[in-house]
C-alpha cells in the first residue's frame, strides 16, 4: 500500500462550481432549512444541504394526510409548505453561517418571473453557495412539474434563473418524463451548471376500505429505497447525455447506495428520505465511502465517478439518449 492510500482518502468534490468537502448533500424537502438538525447531527460534516423549496410568499401546502409509508418508501404530498424566501434569508441564513457546509437554496415559482425573482433575492443574500431549481415537484397545481415536464418550459425557467444569478444553477429534474436526457440537455443548453436527478416518482396509494387515495392531495411523490434503481438508471442516462455534472438522488441510505450513483456517473449525491429514518446517516455513508476507497486502493472519490463497467452498454440512441 502506498503512503497516499494509507492516508485518509480524499472525499472532496467539485460540482458545477460548487466545492464540497464530501459528495453528500442533504436533499431539499427532507432537511427543513437545515437548522432543525443542528445539534442532532454536525451540519459541518455535510458536503452541503439544500433548503426546502421556497417561493416569494409563505405557503400552507397540501391538506392532511400528507405522507403514507409504502414498501421501502414514502409517498408524500406536502405541497411545498414554506416560510417564503425573504423569511429564509432574514432568519435562517444567518444561523446557517455558523456551519462549514455549502448551503443551496431550492427555488420555486408559479411563473417563470417568480423563479427569477426568488433567485435574485437569494443571489443578494450572504452565505448561499448555489441555487437548485425546483421544476419537478409533483404536488403543486401550478409550476413544479409543469415546468419540468416540458423541455421548452425547462429551458425557459433555467435561462431566467441563469440570468438572475452568478451562483451555480442546478435544475432538479423530474423522473416523470419519457426521456430525462432531453431535459438534462435542455438544462445544459440553457446555462445550468449541473443537474440533480431525480425528484420523486409520481405515485398513488389507495385506501381500499374508503376507496379513496390515502393522501388528501390524491397522488404523491414516491421516495426512498423503492425508487433507487429507477433513480440510478435516470441519473446514468442524464450523465451520458450532458457534459455538466449530475447530482444523483433517490433512495440513498448507505455508502453502497451512494456508490451506485457515483459509479454510474454522478459527481455528488443527495440524501433524502433517509434523513427521516436516521439522522446519523451521513456519518455512516461518509465512513463507508472511505472504507470502499481503501479496499479498492483508491485515494480519491473522484476516481470512482463514471467508472461503470458495462460491456453490453446499449448505444445512447436506444435509450433515447
Amino acid at each position: 500500500m502506498t503512503e497516499a492510500i494509507a492516508a485518509a482518502p480524499r472525499l472532496a468534490v467539485e460540482v458545477g462550481g460548487l466545492r464540497l468537502k464530501n459528495p453528500l448533500i442533504a436533499a431539499s424537502g427532507t432537511f427543513g432549512y437545515g437548522v432543525e438538525y443542528a445539534g442532532i447531527l454536525d451540519l459541518s460534516s455535510l458536503g452541503g444541504l439544500v433548503s426546502k423549496g421556497l417561493y416569494l410568499a409563505p405557503r400552507d401546502g397540501c391538506a392532511t394526510p400528507r405522507i403514507v409509508e409504502t414498501p421501502s418508501g414514502l409517498l408524500n404530498a406536502i405541497g411545498l409548505q414554506g416560510v417564503g424566501v425573504r423569511a429564509f434569508v432574514e432568519k435562517v441564513l444567518p444561523a446557517l453561517s455558523a456551519y462549514d457546509t455549502a448551503v443551496l437554496v431550492n427555488v420555486c415559482g408559479d411563473t417563470v418571473e417568480e423563479y427569477a425573482e426568488v433567485t435574485r433575492i437569494v443571489d443578494q443574500a450572504e452565505g448561499v453557495a448555489g441555487v437548485e431549481i425546483n421544476i419537478s415537484c409533483p404536488n403543486v397545481k401550478k409550476g413544479g412539474m409543469a415546468f419540468g415536464g416540458d423541455p421548452r418550459m425547462t429551458s425557459e425557467v433555467v435561462s431566467a434563473v441563469r440570468k438572475a444569478t452568478r451562483l451555480p444553477v442546478i435544475p432538479k429534474l423530474s423522473p416523470n418524463v419519457a426521456d430525462i436526457a432531453v431535459f438534462a440537455r435542455a438544462s445544459e443548453e440553457a446555462g445550468a451548471d449541473a443537474v440533480s436527478c431525480i425528484n420523486t416518482v409520481l405515485g398513488l396509494v389507495v385506501d381500499v376500505e374508503a376507496r379513496r387515495p390515502r393522501l388528501a392531495f390524491g397522488t404523491g411523490g414516491l421516495s426512498g429505497p423503492a425508487i433507487r434503481p429507477i433513480a440510478v438508471r435516470m441519473a446514468w442516462q442524464a450523465a451520458r447525455a450532458v457534459k455538466i455534472p449530475v447530482i444523483g438522488i433517490g433512495g440513498i441510505a448507505c455508502a453502497t447506495d451512494a456508490l451506485e450513483f457515483l459509479i454510474a456517473g454522478c459527481r455528488a449525491v443527495q440524501i433524502g428520505t433517509a434523513n427521516f429514518v436516521d439522522p446519523g446517516v451521513y456519518d455512516r455513508v461518509r465512513d463507508g465511502l472511505a472504507d470502499y476507497l481503501r479496499r479498492h486502493g483508491l485515494d480519491d472519490i473522484n476516481r470512482v465517478v463514471g467508472t461503470l463497467r458495462y460491456p453490453g452498454l446499449p448505444v445512447a440512441e436506444e435509450l433515447g439518449g
Partner: peptide
C-alpha cells in the same frame, strides 16, 4: 398524526 421525522422537516404531521 402520521409522523415522518419527528423534528419538523418532513411537514407530514402538521
Amino acid at each position: 398524526p402520521w409522523m415522518g421525522c419527528g423534528v419538523g422537516t418532513c411537514l407530514g404531521c402538521v
